[in-house]
Write a protein that binds this DNA or RNA. Sequence first.
DNA 1: TATTGTTATACTCTATAACTATA
DNA 2: TATAGTTATAGAGTATAACAATA
Lengths: 147, 147
Amino acid sequence: MAKNDPPAALHDPLDALLGYQLRRASSVMMADLAAALRETGLRPVEASILLVIESSPGCTQSDVGRLLAIKRANMVPLIAGLFKRDLIYRAPVDGRSQALFLSPAGETMARDARKAIDTHEQRFQVLFEDRQVAALLDGLRLIRKHG
Amino acid sequence: MAKNDPPAALHDPLDALLGYQLRRASSVMMADLAAALRETGLRPVEASILLVIESSPGCTQSDVGRLLAIKRANMVPLIAGLFKRDLIYRAPVDGRSQALFLSPAGETMARDARKAIDTHEQRFQVLFEDRQVAALLDGLRLIRKHG
DNA sequence: TATTGTTATACTCTATAACTATA
DNA sequence: TATAGTTATAGAGTATAACAATA
């Protein structure tokens, strides 16, 4: 290789960094998830919210925000969007909070979303043995808890 | 528990999803990295670029963008920012591309960034045995390749 | 006092399209 | 034709501050 040749293939000085590989792997899976959900018309965050409401009917939007680490202020347009599409409805709990429930259309949408998400997950989980997936999940949960 | 009590602690229907845990763990580490780099005045993406140029002096900004998955258009303000702070300089390769190099200040900054990044990484890697870290990295690289 | 939902707002990140100049 | 760098721009995602109503 001549003295002033540019590097043929760049060496990656970030290759051994957990944070970096986490970010890149996460962005690969997010892109795949967005594609998997495309035909439902839901974005990943909207599908996540529907699944949380499905699993905890009657929760408030603050509850959902806390679980998914979405700030109260940012929950407002998300919940409003799902409400406008008649996927959820609200029932007053007390004077300041409202319980969230899936409408019939929301139940159907949640089922479709769950199916798309499971298929998407399978595309990646098949790369590993079950034991490895469990180990990977445990590692990720540990990192989360450490934050 | 009375019939209409709200769920005390919400069950997380996304807990077993690789994509979800990946996203949450990644965001934890990114926030910690940003904090670790704060005193250098570098954002994570800027530190990454400096480390790539340090390890491949003479590479072009397109090279860096390809390695880090940053679009050409988005590289422009990033490289301009590093240039304006005199952390890098450019030398023409041919009429359309320019080779990137660290200035003396950039070398120092890259060393500081590497130190901050390594400390940050250690804060998380100590959660695991070396073998587990290697397994985690391998898993993440496999997911990346699958995208 | 603390919490819920809200508005307004700003900043970062990411994406696309179109242009130029060069190879 | 393909690539490098650039401009302009738009859409997400995320963050803070402040407010009203309620607990």
